[in-house]
Design a protein around this nucleic acid. Structure first.
Lengths: 359, 359
DNA sequence: GCTGTTTTTGAAAACGATTTCATAAAAGAT
DNA sequence: ATCTTTTATGAAATCGTTTTCAAAAACAGC
C-alpha cells in the first residue's frame, strides 16, 4: 500500500503545480505522458528515437521528463527489449592493484558506450563461481567477462545454456574453445625465471598462488619449471611454496623458505605482492637484496618501482587487455562483429632486485 | 524473430528429452511450469516460499528447474516486487588500494545477504556524478553509497526525489544532513601534520588532491592548516601543491617543491600514493629520508610498510567503514532499522619516514 | 480542393515474473 | 461419514516499459 500511495502522490503532482514537485517519488512514463498531454508511446519515442517525434511535442515531453525527474526503469526496458545494457564480470576480488586497474579500465570504456559493468567476486573460491554466474544471468547481462581459462563444468554449462557471450581474460592458451583476451602466463613466468637462471642461480625458491582451481597460478608454475628444465636444474618440489593472496602471505612464504638448512639464492614470485612481502621479510631478517638473495615479481605493478631495491618483474599488458576486452564486447554487441581471441605479449623488466649469486 | 525461435526451441526441449538440453536458450517460468505439469504460480512459490508447496510437487518443480537450467530474471521480479536487491555505489575509481579494499568488503558483505553491488565511477569528475546517479536509479537500486559529504545539488535532488536510501562514506562532518559513515578527514590530517610540527619542522610542504569538488581533500588541507596554526607556523600557500591521483603525480609534486630556492624539510601528503611518489623522487634526487626530508602519508595502506624507510601515515578505518556501511544498509532494508551516522576514529602510525629536521 | 504518400501518433499487446483471490484438496473435528 | 477449517493450487491481473499496427495528421502534386 505504501507503493500505491506513492503512485497516487506522483499522479496528483503531475496534474497540479509542477513547480512544487519535490521529495516525491517515482514518476512513470504514464505520468510523464499525462503531464505532457501525449501518449506513453510518444514519451518512449522521445527517449529512444527522438528524431521521429515532432519538435514541438518533443520539447513538451522533454520538459515534462525534467519537471517530474523521470528516470525510465531498466528493469522494464530489459523485459521488453531483451537487452540490459549490462556486462557482468566475475573476478577473484575487486581490490588488488591488478584487478582494480583492469576493472577500472573495462568499466570506463563500457560506460562511454552506455553499458554498465556489474562485478562479482569469488574470493578465489571456484565453488562460488556458478552461483555468481547464475546471479549475473538473472540480471540479464548481455555479456560476461571471466578471469582465466579454467572454469567449472557447471559454469561453462550455465553460460552456454543461456547463450551469454563470454570473454576470458588474463590467460591465453593454445587450445581454448573460448574467446580469450590475455597473455600466456606460462611464457611470462618462463621469461622471468629464465632471467634468474641465466644469472647463475641454481637453488631457486618459488612463491606462487595456490594452483588448484587457478589456471594462472598453474601455468606460472609450469613456466618456471620450463625455465629450470632448460637450465638443467633439477626440480625440487620442496622449494615451491604456494601462498594465499597478499603481502603478508608472501612474507610468510619467504620466511618458510629461509628457515631451510640451505636457503635458496633467488626467489621467483608469481605476483608482485608476494615479492613485496618477501622484500620486507628479507630486510627484517637482515638479508641484502640482491646480494644475499634475488627476488622477482610478476605483473610489474606501479609499486614495483618504489621498493628498495626496485623489483625485477614481468610486465603484463593489463591496460591493453582491458581495452581490447571492452572493445571486443562492444563490437559484438553493437556492430555484430564476431568476437575473436587476442594474444598479448609480456615483457621482462629487470631492476635492482636481481643479480648473480655471490659465491 | 531470433527470439521467438529461441523460445520455440526451448519449448520443444521442455516437452522432449530433457537430457539432450544443451546450448539452448532461456527457459521461462512458464516453460518450467509446463515441464513439471503445474502452474507458473506454483513455480514462483517453489522459488520464493517453498514451505507452502507440497513436497511431492516441489520436488518435481525443482527437478524441472534444474533440467531446464531455469534462472528467474531479476528484471521481471523487480518490476513486480519493487525491490531490485541491488545496491549502487559511486566511487571516484574502482582501483586504487583504498577504494578497492572498501568496495571489496562492502560487496562481499552484501553478497552474503543476497544483495548485489553495482559500482560506478566518476574519475574524480563531479560533473558526471548526476549521470551516474541517474543510471543507478534507472537500475532500481535499493540504496546508494556515495564517497564524501559534498555532492552537487543535482545529485542530492535526484536521490531525494526518488527516495533512495543513501549513505555517505569516507567523511564525517558535524553538520551533515545525511547518514555518514566515516572519519573526520580534517582531524586525521591534523594528527599527522601535528606530528610533523612537533618534530620541529617549520617549513612544511603539502601534497594533496585537488580540493575543488573533493571535500576529503579540502578537509585534509584544513586539518594541516589547523596543525600549522597551532604550532604558530605561518601558512605559505606556495608550499601547498595539489596533484592528480597517483604515484607519478606525487613524484612530480615533490620535484616541484624541491626545485624551490629553500625547499621544505618535511612533506605532508594527503595520500599514501603521493608519499610513495615523493619517496621515490627523493631517492632519485639523492635525498635521504628522513635525514634530509621527512615524508608522511595518509591512509596507512598495505604498502606503507614495504617502502624504505617505512612510511609514517595515519590509519583510516577502511575495513570498519565498509563493514558498518554494509551493515547499516542491510539493517535498514531487511529489518527496517533506522540508518544512523557512525564516526570512526583514525590513528597516527609513526614509522621511519619522519624525524626531526637536521640543523 | 482533392487524392495519394509520408510522417506522427496512440491503443493495446507484449516481456516474465509475483501476487491476489477464488476454488479445490487435504486435514481435523464430531 | 459429514461438516468445518486449513492448506495448496491455478487463473488472471499487475509491474513499467517497448513495439506493432492501424488511424490521424501533415504534406505533395495536380
Amino acid at each position: 500500500m505504501c507503493e500505491s500511495f506513492a503512485r497516487r502522490v506522483s499522479a496528483e503532482v503531475a496534474d497540479a503545480d509542477a513547480k512544487a514537485v519535490r521529495l516525491v517519488s517515482v514518476a512513470t512514463i504514464e505520468d510523464v505522458a499525462r503531464h505532457a498531454g501525449v501518449s506513453a508511446a510518444t514519451v518512449s519515442r522521445v527517449l529512444n528515437t527522438p528524431e521521429r517525434v515532432r519538435t514541438e511535442r518533443r520539447v513538451r515531453v522533454e520538459q515534462a521528463i525534467d519537471e517530474l525527474g523521470f528516470v525510465p526503469l531498466t528493469a522494464a526496458q530489459r523485459l521488453k527489449s531483451g537487452r540490459s545494457m549490462t556486462i557482468g564480470a566475475i573476478f577473484p576480488r575487486i581490490d588488488s592493484i591488478l584487478f582494480g586497474s583492469v576493472l577500472n579500465e573495462i568499466q570506463s570504456r563500457l560506460d562511454d558506450a552506455g553499458f554498465t559493468l556489474t562485478v562479482m567476486t569469488t574470493g578465489y573460491d571456484m565453488d562460488v563461481e556458478p552461483t555468481r554466474v547464475r546471479q549475473l544471468i538473472a540480471r540479464g547481462i548481455d555479456a560476461l567477462v571471466l578471469v582465466g581459462g579454467l572454469h567449472s563444468e557447471q559454469t561453462d554449462d550455465l553460460i552456454a545454456r543461456h547463450d551469454v557471450p563470454r570473454v576470458n581474460v588474463w590467460a591465453w592458451q593454445e587450445d581454448s574453445p573460448h574467446v580469450q583476451i590475455g597473455f600466456c602466463n606460462r611464457n611470462a613466468a618462463r621469461q622471468v625465471a629464465t632471467h634468474v637462471c641465466s644469472l647463475g642461480h641454481r637453488k631457486i625458491g618459488v612463491i606462487s598462488g595456490h594452483p588448484d582451481g587457478n589456471d594462472r597460478a598453474k601455468m606460472c608454475l609450469l613456466g618456471v619449471k620450463d625455465a629450470l628444465d632448460a637450465a638443467g636444474i633439477a626440480i625440487d618440489p620442496s622449494l615451491f611454496v604456494p601462498a594465499g593472496f597478499g603481502i603478508e602471505e608472501g612474507a610468510a612464504a619467504f620466511l618458510d623458505l629461509f628457515n631451510r638448512s640451505v636457503p635458496p639464492t633467488a626467489i621467483v614470485c608469481t605476483s608482485d605482492l608476494f615479492a613485496f612481502g618477501a622484500l620486507r621479510e628479507a630486510r627484517r631478517l637482515g638479508l641484502r637484496v640482491p646480494e644475499d638473495v634475488s627476488i622477482t615479481g610478476f605483473d610489474d605493478s606501479d609499486f614495483a618501482q618504489i621498493t628498495v631495491p626496485a623489483l625485477t618483474s614481468v610486465r603484463t599488458p593489463r591496460q591493453m587487455m582491458a581495452a581490447r576486452c571492452a572493445q571486443t564486447i562492444l563490437g559484438y554487441l553493437n556492430e555484430g562483429h564476431k568476437m575473436s581471441s587476442v594474444r598479448l605479449s609480456t615483457e621482462l623488466i629487470v631492476r635492482g632486485s636481481t643479480a648473480a649469486p655471490t659465491a
